[in-house]
Computed example of a mutant assay.
Amino acid sequence: MHYQDSIDAAARALETARQMIADEIRDYPTPVSGCDAQYNHLLARRAQITKALTTLNSDVFVPTPRTLTEGSGVESR
């Protein structure tokens, strides 16, 4: 198994979790007050999952001796 398979499985699991939370939020009984702890918890979990998916799908800069800062180009010698 390749590491990418695990990353893809994690992304699918997060997408499934995001959809389940979206369904719970959609079906949540109204009216919702600003102090409804359970509803606020769902919103917080949705934000966490969205952040995890964004992080999982974004490119990450890894500094090297030739490129110390992002966007600095490659040092020629």
Rank of each mutant, 00 (worst) to 15 (best):
Gly73Gln: 02
Ala11Lys: 11
Arg66Met: 05
Glu75Ala: 09
Ser58Met: 15
Thr30Gln: 14
Thr69Gly: 10
Asp36Lys: 02
Gln4Val: 15
Pro63Tyr: 06
Val74Lys: 09
Lys51Met: 14
Leu42Phe: 02
Gln48Leu: 13
Tyr28Ser: 02
Arg66Lys: 11
Ala11Asn: 09
Gln4Trp: 15
Val32Asn: 03
Asn40Pro: 01
Gly34Asn: 13
Ser72Ile: 06
Arg46Pro: 00
Glu15Cys: 07
Pro63Asn: 09
Tyr39His: 12
Asp27His: 12
Thr30Asp: 09
Thr50Trp: 01
Arg12Phe: 07
His41Met: 10
Val62Gly: 01
Val62Ile: 07
Ala13Val: 04
Val74Leu: 12
Pro31Ser: 06
Gly34Glu: 10
Gln38Pro: 06
Asp23His: 11
Ile25Gly: 08
Glu70Ser: 06
Gln4Cys: 11
Ala9Lys: 09
Asn57Asp: 15
Ala10Trp: 03
Ser58Trp: 13
Arg46Lys: 14
Thr16Leu: 12
Ile21Gly: 01
Asp8Gly: 05
Ser6Pro: 00
Ser33Ile: 11
Arg26Glu: 09
Asp27Gly: 11
Tyr28Phe: 11
Thr50Tyr: 05
Leu43Gln: 15
Thr54Ser: 10
Gln48Asp: 15
Leu68Lys: 11
Arg66Leu: 08
Thr64Ser: 11
Pro65Met: 06
Arg46His: 12
Val32Lys: 09
Glu15Asp: 14
Gln4Gly: 09
Thr67Val: 12
Asp27Lys: 10
Gln19Lys: 15
Ala17Ile: 05
Ser6Cys: 02
Pro63Met: 10
Ala9Pro: 00
Ile49Asp: 01
